[in-house]
Amino acid sequence: MKVALIGFGNAGGKVADELLNYQQHTGRGLFRYMLAVNAARSDLARLDRISDDDQILIGQTDERVKGHGVGADPELGAEVTRRDRHEVERALDDVPVYEVDAFLVVAGLGGGTGSGGAPVLAESLRKMYDEPVYGLGILPSADEGGRASFNAARSLQSFVDATDNLLLFDNDAWRGYQDSVGDGYRRTNQELATRIGALLSAGNLDGTDVSENVMDASDIRRTLNTGGVSSIAYAEEGLERETENAQGLLAKFRGNGSNLDVDTAKKVSGVVRKAVQSRLTCPAEIESAERSLIVVSGPPAELSRKGLESARSWLEAQTNSIEVLAGDDPRKSADKLAAVVLLSNVTDVPRVDNLQDQAVDAADNIESQRETRDEEIENLIRDDDGALDPI
């Protein structure tokens, strides 16, 4: 799948940067266009792979911003995005529309620029182009505080409404207890890039073998056209020693009913089950998914049509849905067997429910503190008897 990639805000820019690193590292041509949008000049300066020519600083003429960010205020982020929208749209004139299958807008939902501005941009893109616009939203971890949860819960509603589908990644589920803040986010960004990259790679004709079980951009789009929010599962396994030493010899024996063929089918089915039963990008009850898609990638000798059929039947039973597509992605030089599973329009997502509860509590606290604060200020600056008049 060929994508126009837009990183919005600090977290969105860093994830987009890591997605480009994945592309460069794997040699897969996924992104036909890239852009980083931010209200903070310092955040743009920290990007390693998105060039200066592919960056836009918004809010420069706003006296509250002036290149220093929006101070975790999503309403200000949305406002400066609307004000500078035409500047962003001019940059989008360079998108090679006939070469892209979709737009992907990436943003962290706990801050200000991305949480407020990304939904505004996504809505504009849907009006301008016929291609679907997908979002990738990063939920904040609990240690980022109540304000981040409050912002994320509000942004989530807007981002879902503004996109054809919103892929979710939950930092809380992926941050390790031993991670420093910087190392933790770098590692989770890499994990996220691996999963998004593996999904988008399906069906790309980039020098690899053509899949026997063809999976292409239209299958991804069909799976995602449910709307709502989605989550991604991923797992990988090492190769068999025989595959590493003699892939060509193994291939000659495929399809003869041999034990080798049976073992390969079991391994393919097993890695798909392992993916679904491990951590999703955002934990969710898989039976709540409306549609699903399976892509298994690896050397041709490690792929199995029977294994895919078995995995698809198993996932149909788990999700209680026949809307499950499955295909493979042959990679002669691959050093592992990997499975990525897209679960589209999941409706039972405990993290989102908790986020909304936290946001409601935060909103009540904000209002209560505001009322108390106003009273305390009055008590501080005015004398008890009212004998003093202000100048």
Rank of each mutant, 00 (worst) to 15 (best):
L224D: 07
K336T: 10
A102K: 04
I322V: 15
Q369Y: 15
A173S: 07
E87V: 15
N10I: 07
Q277C: 05
N21W: 12
R83N: 11
M215C: 10
P350T: 02
N379Y: 13
L192T: 09
R41D: 14
N379I: 10
A91K: 13
L19V: 06
P132C: 10
D43T: 07
G114I: 05
D219K: 10
G111R: 02
Y185D: 02
D183Y: 12
V271C: 08
D364A: 13
K14S: 06
S258A: 08
T281I: 01
K332Q: 14
V346S: 00
A39E: 04
R221T: 15
Y134E: 02
G182K: 12
M128F: 12
Q277F: 10
Y33L: 04
G77M: 05
V229W: 07
G203L: 07
D84M: 02
L125T: 02
E75R: 15
S321F: 06
L109Q: 05
G137N: 07
V262C: 09
V15L: 05
V3I: 06
V352M: 04
D17A: 00
V346T: 03
R221H: 13
T26I: 05
D357W: 10
L5A: 00
Y185F: 12
G9W: 07
E123M: 14
E87D: 15
G228Q: 06
G77P: 03
E99C: 09
T372P: 02
T264A: 01
S141M: 15
E302S: 03
H25C: 08
G145K: 03
R32Y: 11
L92M: 02
A387N: 09
A275H: 04
D54M: 14
V229E: 08
S292G: 11
N256L: 13
G13F: 04
D361G: 11
V105Q: 06
L388C: 13
E367P: 00
A387W: 11
S278G: 08
L92V: 00
G207C: 03
R85I: 14
K336F: 08
D179G: 00
A118E: 03
D364F: 14
N379E: 12
G9A: 05
A301L: 01
L249N: 11
G7F: 04
G203Y: 03
N165D: 08
N354K: 13
N345I: 10
D161V: 13
D179H: 00
N365P: 01
Q24G: 07
G227V: 08
L156Q: 07
E89Q: 10
G203C: 09
K274L: 01
G12L: 02
E191M: 09
Q23R: 07
Y33F: 09
V120A: 01
A317L: 14
D348N: 13
Q247D: 13
H25A: 12
E123C: 10
K127M: 11
P132S: 11
R305W: 10
I286W: 06
P283W: 04
K127N: 11
F8K: 05
Q358S: 11
R331I: 14
E79Q: 15
Y22T: 00
A338F: 05
